[in-house]
Simulated scan of single mutants.
Amino acid sequence: MSIANEPAPETPGAQTLRRGLSILKLLARYQPEGLGVSDIARKLELNKATAVRLTRTLMDEQFVAQNADTRRYQLGPESFAVGLAAEPHYALQRIAAPHLRALALETGDWLFFSVRHGLEAICLSRESGDIPYPQASLRVGDRHPLGLGAGGLAILAALPEEEAEMVITINAPEIARRYPQMTEDTVRNLHQTARGQGYSVIPGVLAPGFWGIGVPVLRPDGQPLAAIVLLASAVRLGYARQATIAARLQRVSRDLMLAPSDS
């Protein structure tokens, strides 16, 4: 029997690299407060000795730094340098920031900006409103399969029908594993609704008691690049306000693509 299609076993070096990168990704989500080594080990399911060894190696290379007062680990100067090198790819997020900040002040709700990365949506920024922040909601750096969350659903609904169908088929098992109430049928129904109305509405799946409204940010050819999401408590986001907020988000989305880049 042929085993040509079986994946090669991961080498120790590749496993070490993957674990080190996982630490960097984790710390990116907990900036600027950072994390202690026990928290790193627990969240990544590593034994503490491994977490200490990897974190110290990252410190030696200046990708991680330790706060002298809190003893927590944070991203170091080399991480910043790598981020600057990649920054041109995130010019749209930089352009979006003042628009979302103004909208958060205007509405009092939370605003998020996520970009599409293959079959996922990655949260790049959030702007604070005046409501308490739901602990279960998005952090900067979080990534979700397209179809989960208002941003990922808005991007999914803007894709051509055949491509969207392929994405749903691939992502549905992972979405259902993480959120059992989000069955494939539920994702399809939410997708069709979002496709019909031009914006997505998610009723408290990721953050119970909070609703999200998402709109896509589209390239001139209609392909979705990103999504803007507003998160509000269910009592603040009745049906009448949903349409008003969606129209406001769509206006911001259009303005982003018309704004000149400073690069």
Rank of each mutant, 00 (worst) to 15 (best):
S38G: 11
T183A: 06
A41R: 05
V229A: 03
L156C: 09
A81E: 13
K25M: 14
E184M: 08
A85L: 14
A28Q: 07
L46T: 02
P9Q: 10
K25E: 14
A232Y: 02
Y239T: 15
G204N: 00
D185R: 13
Q66G: 06
S137F: 13
P77L: 15
P260N: 06
P132E: 08
T244P: 05
M59T: 09
T11D: 07
G118M: 10
A246M: 14
F113K: 02
H117W: 11
R126F: 02
S233A: 15
T244E: 14
R139G: 04
P132K: 11
I245Y: 15
R236D: 05
G204Q: 00
L24D: 04
A81N: 14
I155M: 11
L84E: 10
L35R: 04
L256H: 03
P77G: 08
L237K: 02
E6Y: 15
E162G: 05
L190Q: 04
G151S: 08
L17Y: 05
R254P: 05
T57H: 11
D255E: 15
I175G: 01
L156T: 11
I168L: 12
M1Y: 11
R101Y: 02
A121M: 12
T50R: 10
G83Q: 00
P77Y: 07
S22L: 13
G222D: 12
M1C: 12
V235C: 02
G238H: 13
L35Q: 08
R42I: 13
I175C: 05
D69W: 13
Q242R: 15
A232L: 12
Q31E: 15
G238S: 06
A102T: 01
Y90G: 09
A194F: 05
R178S: 11
Q242N: 08
H144W: 13
I170W: 07
Q192Y: 07
G214Q: 15
V205S: 00
A96V: 04
L21W: 09
V64Q: 01
E184C: 05
R236Y: 05
L21N: 08
R241S: 14
T57D: 07
R71S: 12
R18G: 12
E6R: 12
L159F: 06
T50S: 13
A104N: 01
F63G: 02
M182H: 01
A246R: 02
G147H: 09
L146E: 04
L218E: 00
K43P: 04
R72F: 03
A65Q: 06
E6W: 14
A96I: 04
I175A: 06
A227P: 07
L138A: 09
Q15W: 12
A227W: 11
V201C: 06
G196L: 06
R29C: 10
H89D: 09
M166F: 06
Q135G: 09
E120K: 12
A49S: 13
E10Y: 06
I23Q: 03
I95G: 05
G152M: 07
